[in-house]
Design a protein around this nucleic acid. Structure first.
Length: 751
RNA sequence: UGGGGUAUGGCCAAGCGGUAAGGCAACGGUUUUUGGUACCGUUAUUCGGGGGUUCGAAUCCCUCUACCCCAUCCA
């Protein structure tokens, strides 16, 4: 964690802290209690609680319960449970948006009094029409100019239930022509004669997300309101509400990240619900589902999920994470923790003809590389079962297990070799007659026999029967579309697997590694001593199975796709004239001339600069690059520097007082402070160093400090040239004349 | 089509003008009484495309392209 780079959210938090914007960081996890949480929620939980933890802040758990028709307490419980299971503690009590209904109502009244909200009575359909489209502006409802008094009375009536659903709504008065659809007078309240699972029947109106969320954040003192990308368009309302209400600072700000997607599964509430309702899965806790309940029943640990969330990172690009990453995180977590036991899923009887009686073998629960103590007794006799595919009559090349010619070690026991194969009428192998080597006992092997593999087994009479549920990915397709993409083999039930008795009688743990199979979990719901049931959490990595199946991954070198350039909008006459002048008279290259000509502000800035100092090309270059950047976020009036400053800056570059690198630095300072470039150079001592006598010792020092890189460079790694230039420039605080430095380094390095 | 976003290896993802981090996956090898683990090594002359600026560009400028989100009285 120490050296890991911070994600963009943490960077924002740190900057805000540094700027003294907040005393303490407060985040929140704000689900709507209308469904079961899934691993996507886990990501959000991990981010919100994780940030609070990292910066000694706090994180609230808030139920965003503003829609009484979809929400329910069972989901509240599931959500609370999920957070706790993942190991987080929310600050104080669980919060509910419904607790703020009265406060929210007060804010609505304030907005009406400010003339910023009105009761609209347009029928639903008409309201939609009035909203316009993405390309066409909407128009305001005629009800928008109701008096404050009338609005107040109407809202009160709505609240009291005097109107039918749909009759009126409260809307913010913002801008029906806004390019952001969300800002076209968004709804603040709607009438709903519904029973709320907490607020009861007190309210006949309920606040909308856009009104309730920002204010709930504010009420709770939240500083960083972190949500997913689809709310980017809502940020403008978030800010509008908080700003318009003129609330006392500090106030929260919204930041968005990309929601989690994983391949071969689905994450949307709608699709998850469909699976449950159509009984494709057994319920919300079906171990194949990416729900927290499902993952948990499957046997995933909270640690593994948290690690997974940390591994995948937080960013703003929509992405689909490979399930292999999730599988890795659970294997990685369980490997050093969990006891190894022997289980045979598909038994093949082996009779050891030269063994008489029985014995109990000592067997450690953990392999040599897991530093944990613990062992059990494993019964052994002449009748045992091994895995059917651990024997092959006609082995393929590279097969390490038992064959007529190849002996194999029974893990924790003896080496055996096959003496006879018994088959039924169909020719299926039903039993192996084998012989064991008495002096090959595990731990005291003096047989000198070399085996290529050790396999698991169980003693025939003592073994316990168990049910094993083998789970695989739910869908066949990486990005599944619907039920038609379901993997028909996502669940395989093995009714009569055999397991060594200690697992059932001693119960050393609830999670195990069934040796050479995978990690398994005693099903928390259906397991009983009479009928033990184990879920496969994840299989072991199996490079043998892979080698058999996939006939070498084909080298998938896709040819680079050719991109077709779209059309560029033609220049106006005025632009054309400027372009001509710039290319012909001032000798600018066409690219620079083009951008300058097309931008009225830039070109007038440029031409004014030319009146101070006439180097059309160099000034144009700086204006089209650096000045253009500043103009992206500011208007020309807001710029701290003037065209003549730019001209003077170029003059200093031209007479080699400063390098272009320094010029950029000076430019930045100029746009911050508005100082004259000469002053900046003077006060900061930025005059460039071109004297080889000064530069050479520095170069030698850099080379002396990086002898390996010098060697690599001389061996042909020419990329490192930039490294040396960079180091030298760093040592001179950027003041070295890069051209001279380049020359000198080239000389030194090649000598 | 207006607005808001996003593009770095097979999948995530750092990077903020000076040597293209890291994890997963894959592929070799060593160790191994798990074809597991661990360890070692290999895998981007290039950052969506094209131009420009610069001694030097994934990073700055211009432009094009692709994908995601927004027109629920859902959140």
């Amino acid at each position: 964690m120490e050296n890991r780079s911070k994600d963009f959210l943490r960077r924002v938090v740190e900057e805000d802290l540094k700027a003294g914007k907040y005393q303490e960081i407060v985040t929140r996890f704000p689900p709507e209690p209308n469904g079961f949480p899934h691993i996507g929620h886990a990501k959000s939980i991990s981010i919100n609680f994780g940030i609070a933890k990292d910066y000694q802040g706090r994180c609230n758990l808030r139920m965003d319960d503003t829609n009484p028709t979809t929400e329910d307490t069972q989901y509240v419980e599931a959500l609370k449970d999920a957070v706790q299971w993942l190991g987080f503690k929310w600050d104080k009590e669980v919060r509910y948006t419904s607790d703020y209904f009265s406060k929210l109502y007060e804010y609505a009244i304030k907005l009406i009094k400010m003339g910023k909200a009105y009761v609209d009575s347009l029928p639903e359909e008409e309201m939609r029409e009035y909203r316009g489209t993405v390309t066409q502006a909407g128009k305001r409802s005629k009800y928008a100019n109701r008096s404050v008094k009338e609005n107040l009375e109407l809202l009160e009536g709505m609240k009291k239930g005097e109107f039918k659903e749909g009759e009126h709504v409260l809307r913010a008065k913002i801008d029906m022509a806004s390019p952001n659809m969300k800002m076209r007078d968004p709804l603040l309240y709607r009438i709903k004669h519904a029973h709320h699972f907490r607020a009861g029947d007190e309210w006949a109106i309920y606040p909308m997300y856009d009104f309730a969320h920002c204010l709930s954040d504010y009420i709770e003192g939240v500083t960083h309101s972190i949500c997913t990308l689809e709310f980017e368009n809502n940020r403008e309302i978030y800010d509008w509400v908080l700003e318009t209400l003129e609330l006392e600072p500090p106030r929260p700000y919204q930041h968005e990240f990309a929601r989690l997607n994983i391949n071969y599964t689905v994450m949307s509430k709608r699709k998850l619900l469909e699976l449950v309702e159509k009984e494709v899965v057994s319920g919300w806790d079906d171990p194949r589902l990416p729900t927290i309940a499902g993952l948990r029943r499957r046997g995933y640990t909270p640690e593994s999920i948290l690690n997974f969330c940390e591994q995948i990172g937080v960013a703003k690009a929509n992405s689909v994470v490979d399930v292999a990453q999730l599988e890795f995180s659970i294997r990685d977590d369980l490997n050093p923790k969990v006891p190894r036991v022997m289980c045979v899923l598909d038994p093949l009887k082996v009779t050891i003809t030269n063994y008489e009686g029985s014995e109990e073998l000592d067997a450690s629960y953990y392999p040599h590389d897991v530093p944990k103590e613990g062992s059990r007794k494993v019964p052994f006799s002449k009748e045992i079962y091994i895995e059917r595919d651990d024997f092959m009559e006609n082995p393929t090349k590279g097969y390490f297990r038992l064959t007529p010619e190849q002996p194999v070690r029974l893990k924790h026991a003896y080496i055996i070799s096959c003496k006879e194969i018994i088959k039924d009428e169909q020719g299926n192998v039903v039993e192996i007659k084998a012989e064991y080597y008495p002096n090959s006992k595990s731990g005291s092997d003096r047989s000198g026999i070399k085996v290529r593999s050790a396999i698991q087994w169980v003693e025939a009479n003592e073994a316990k029967e168990i049910e094993v549920r083998l789970y695989d990915r739910l869908y066949n397709k990486e990005i599944p579309e619907g039920i038609e993409d379901i993997n028909p083999n996502s669940l395989k039930v093995v009714k009569n697997a055999l397991i060594e008795p200690a697992v059932i009688t001693q119960k050393p743990d609830i999670r195990f590694q069934f040796e050479r199979h995978g990690y398994f979990f005693a099903d928390p719901v259906e397991y009983s001593d009479e009928k033990p049931i184990f879920n496969r959490i994840v299989s072991l990595k199996d490079s043998w199975a892979k080698k058999k199946k996939t006939d070498r991954t084909k080298p998938k070198t896709e040819p680079k796709k050719v991109q077709i350039d779209g059309e560029v909008t033609p220049m106006t006459q005025e632009e054309e004239a400027r372009f001509e002048k710039y290319t012909n008279e001032l000798k600018l290259n066409s690219e620079v001339a083009n951008t300058l000509a097309r931008d009225k502000q830039l070109s007038s800035f440029y031409e004014e600069a030319l009146t101070t100092y006439s180097n059309p090309v160099n000034i144009a270059n700086l204006v089209t690059n650096e000045v253009a950047r500043e103009l992206k976020s500011k208007t020309i009036g807001e710029l701290k520097f003037k065209p003549k400053n730019i001209a003077n800056l170029i003059k200093m570059v031209d007479d080699e007082t400063i390098s272009t690198k320094i010029a950029k630095q000076v430019f930045e300072e100029m746009s911050r402070s508005g100082q004259e470039p000469q002053k900046i150079v003077e006060s900061k001592g930025l005059v460039q160093i071109s004297d080889p006598a000064v530069l050479l010792p520095i170069i030698e020092e850099v080379m002396a400090k990086n002898p390996d890189n010098v060697e690599k460079f001389r061996a042909g790694n020419s990329k490192l040239f930039g490294f040396f230039v960079g180091q030298v420039l760093k040592a001179t605080k950027g003041k070295g004349n890069p051209k001279v430095v380049n020359e000198l380094i080239k000389e030194k390095l090649n000598s």
